[in-house]
C-alpha cells in the first residue's frame, strides 16, 4: 500500500515537472513572436506606402496593427493557460 502511494506521488510529481518544462518552452516562443509581429507590421506598411506613395501614414497604421497582433499573442497564450488550469483542477 505504502509503495503504491509512493509510486502514485512519484508519477504526479513527474507529470507536473513535464508540464512545467512544456509550458516554459511554449512561453519562450512569446518574445520572438511579439518582436516579429511588430517587424512584419512595419514591413507591410512600408511596402504599401511605397506602392501607394502615401508615406508615412500606412507605415504608422500597420505598426499599430503589429503591436496589437503582439498583444493578441499574449492574450491567446493567457487563454490557453487558463483553460489548461481549469482542466487540471477538474481532474
Amino acid at each position: 500500500m505504502l509503495e503504491k502511494d509512493g509510486n502514485l506521488m512519484d508519477m504526479t510529481i513527474q507529470s507536473s515537472k513535464k508540464d512545467v518544462v512544456r509550458s516554459l518552452l511554449s512561453y519562450s516562443s512569446l518574445g520572438l513572436e511579439m518582436g516579429l509581429s511588430v517587424a512584419i507590421g512595419i514591413a507591410i506598411g512600408y511596402f504599401l506606402d511605397s506602392f501607394f506613395k502615401t508615406s508615412p501614414y500606412l507605415t504608422i497604421i500597420f505598426m499599430i496593427f503589429g503591436v496589437a497582433a503582439a498583444m493578441k499573442t499574449i492574450f491567446t497564450l493567457l487563454k490557453k493557460v487558463q483553460k489548461d488550469n481549469e482542466r487540471d483542477n477538474h481532474k
Binding site: L36, S37, I40, F62, F65, A69, K72, T73
Partner: peptide, 11 residues
C-alpha cells in the same frame, strides 16, 4: 483581419 494576418505570418 490585419491583426490576425500579421499574427499568422509571424508564426
Amino acid at each position: 483581419v490585419p491583426i490576425e494576418l500579421i499574427g499568422h505570418i509571424a508564426r
